[in-house]
Amino acid sequence: MTNSVNSATRRARWTTLIAAGAAVVSLAAGSLPASADERTPAPATGTARGHQPVDTAALAALMAPGAVANGTMVRVGGHGGVRWTGATGPLSQDPEANFRIGSITKLFTSTVALQLIGEGRFTMDTPVQEVLPGTLPAHWQPITVGQLLSHTSGLQMPCVEFGKDEHPAPEQVIAHWTAPGCAAPQYPVLTQQYNGANYFLLGMVIEKATGRPYADEVQRRIARPLGLRHTYSPKAGDGSLPGPALAEAGDIDPWAWAEGGMISNAPDLERFMAALLRGRLLKPSQQRQLFTMPALSEGNVDRYSMSGMMRAEADGAVVWGKTGSMGPSTSGVFATDRGARTVVYSLVPVTKDRTQMRVHLGRLITAAL
């Protein structure tokens, strides 16, 4: 049986993958140029996930520019290094091209927060109000760090938003979420509800606990130790994207910060994800939080662990990762157990059909993994 047939049998299991900020493509078959330095996919032997061949024919078909996306980049890696990489449409063919990673930023934020928990700075059960007194309305019930990480805080979406030319401080963003007339958290919290406000508060908790800027902590604790030369959190108001850029810059979210403001590239994201899943960044007790699913996630289309990482299944294999959108691009990084196989993608969607996008993302990742 060919890999393409195997991919087809796995697609149905990916219908629970997508989250806010993720997008996918459904395209006709077409040719796929490899990147300049990796024209031929690396050889693979065996049938275990992480060693099976990449389904390059399926990837080529899914990445061809069409009615849903006009360009797609995919990088497949894992044990043994890069297995395959390529880009279509107007996207840069440079395998180290930079792009805004959107809500993939949340994985960096949660990793720093879990490191601080491992150092005893606070716990999963520490109320945010204890670390950041006066930040949330006094009449609200306590919201814990663990609830922020797992999107089980009950926080509602903002009723006031910023203009694209505004560059608010994190405290101003939270003030918009908690302004008079905005919805208060729902009690009791009955389900997991994905919300960027959780990660703005986590960024503020990180800064309060360390006495240093969030961006500095990401560099000190993750980017520099792992050699992530293209990964950083830009300063407020910095709309630049260093070259080579994967795609046109487009409009950016002025208040993304610890929730979705970082810049990176495919090799860096691959390295970060592998290090995270292999236990290089967290102590064992915090490492377990990466994969522990809160009870409130049961029954949700999109499920997040206690660390805020997405969980999905493909052909019986559990896959972990995160999606994100910023400017014109939608991106994601996913990996199997301990990073045996990883996939990083970024595409420029031209449709708002979420169902079509959801189905295609499953096919794209299944072909890669």
Score class of each variant (00 low, 15 high):
N198D: 12
P294A: 07
Q192S: 08
A184Y: 00
V319F: 12
E130V: 02
M63W: 13
S305T: 12
P234D: 06
A236M: 02
L116R: 08
V24Y: 15
F162W: 10
T85D: 10
M306K: 05
N70S: 02
K235Q: 13
R212K: 15
S346G: 03
L296G: 04
L136N: 08
E119T: 02
L201A: 01
M326I: 02
R358M: 12
A258M: 07
V333M: 09
A19D: 04
V82I: 15
G332S: 06
R224A: 11
M293C: 13
M357E: 13
R49S: 10
G102R: 07
D353L: 10
Q172D: 05
V76T: 00
L114C: 04
G243W: 00
G163Q: 07
D94T: 06
K164R: 07
M273V: 02
M309G: 01
M124I: 12
L91Q: 11
G299Y: 11
D37W: 03
R303Y: 00
T15Y: 02
S150W: 05
L277P: 02
G71Q: 08
D94E: 06
G308W: 09
S150M: 13
R75S: 11
P254F: 07
V160K: 11
P127K: 08
F200G: 01
V160F: 13
Q287D: 04
G324T: 01
G203H: 04
P267N: 01
R303G: 07
M273S: 09
T152V: 01
Y199S: 05
P328C: 08
A48T: 11
D302V: 13
R83C: 06
Q172F: 02
R75Y: 05
Y345F: 14
P234N: 09
